[in-house]
Amino acid sequence: MFTSVPGLTSIPSLWLQITIVAVWVLLVLLIAWVVKRFANGEPEILRKIVHIGTGNVILLAWWLDVPASVGITASILASAVTLLSYRFPILPGINSVGRQSLGTFFYAVSVGILVAYFWHLQQPQYAAIGIMVMAWGDGLAALIGQRFGKHQYKIFGAQKSWEGSFTMALVSYLVSSLILLGVEGNTWQTWVVSLAVALVATGLEAVSFLGVDNLTVPLGSAALAFALFQLWPT
């Protein structure tokens, strides 16, 4: 089980936990700033650096056994800041003022919902699946789709590429498999559930608009994985 980590038999103090998580977030923001300042980074690349990097906080929270109250509070604060950032330049390079997307807000909300629910159930692996599928799957799908997406399609007016959708499915499958392998082991459920999560997450991402996939993908992926393991216990 990932919840039993060698060398962490005694859980660090709450302030140490918060400090470690905060340092990670600041490091991600610093990397994005350096890329923007010295490498003339494109806005979308900067956003995906933050998108992917901050998503990994869920693994730190799981590893350190951070209390749910901390994750929920951080989610509320992040949601408030992101809402303000749509009107004021609080997060330049991450959100543009007036940008027609609530993706960053939905991202923060999804973290709070998943932490609140699955920490309570003492099943943090499902929260991790939801957030990591969103962080890595959607993040890399957007980058690959924009760079190499030659075969376009539209669903409900949203333009996607088959290259991006394939990346979403592949990365979602890998992320889910790695997490479930560490928790459930090498069972048929691990591989079947991972495949189901990958397909559903890709479908949810394909029909997204106004950034709503940052809510539907993590919640849908986590809920599906949880439900299937209730149906097919190991």
Results as ranks from 00 to 15, higher is better:
A142T: 14
P124Y: 02
A127Y: 02
G137Y: 06
H51P: 10
W62P: 02
I94G: 07
L174I: 15
T82H: 11
Q230F: 02
T190F: 00
G55F: 07
G164Y: 02
A225M: 11
F226R: 03
W15D: 10
E205M: 04
K150T: 14
A80C: 14
M1S: 13
I20L: 13
S75I: 03
L224P: 05
H51W: 08
A198V: 02
N186Q: 13
A142G: 14
Q122S: 15
L215A: 07
M1H: 13
G203K: 03
V217M: 09
I49R: 01
L219E: 04
T190C: 06
K160S: 10
I144D: 01
G55M: 08
G112Y: 03
I45W: 02
V5I: 14
F118C: 05
V192Q: 04
W136L: 15
R47P: 09
G112C: 07
L102A: 15
M1E: 11
V66H: 00
I129M: 12
S10F: 01
A196V: 14
V133A: 09
A225D: 10
G185K: 03
T54S: 13
K36A: 15
P218E: 05
S177Q: 07
R37M: 08
G185S: 02
L224E: 06
A39P: 00
W232P: 07
K150S: 15
A222P: 08
I155E: 10
S208I: 00
G53D: 09
G203M: 04
Y86F: 01
E163D: 06
S13L: 04
F148V: 04
Q189V: 08
G139W: 06
A135T: 07
W232Y: 14
A116K: 05
V111F: 14
L83F: 15
T234F: 08
A108N: 10
S208Y: 00
W162H: 12
G145D: 10
L199T: 11
G203T: 00
K150R: 15
S69I: 05
G203Q: 01
S110I: 04
G182N: 07
M132I: 11
V115N: 03
L91N: 09
Y153L: 14
D213M: 09
P92R: 12
S96W: 07
S10H: 05
T187N: 10
I49P: 02
S79T: 15
R147H: 05
E42F: 00
I11K: 09
P92D: 12
Y117T: 13
N56G: 13
Q17L: 02
A223C: 06
L114D: 06
Q189T: 09
Q159W: 03
Q159P: 04
L228M: 15
R147A: 12
V200A: 11
F105S: 08
S194L: 06
T73R: 01
E205G: 06
N186F: 13
S165M: 05
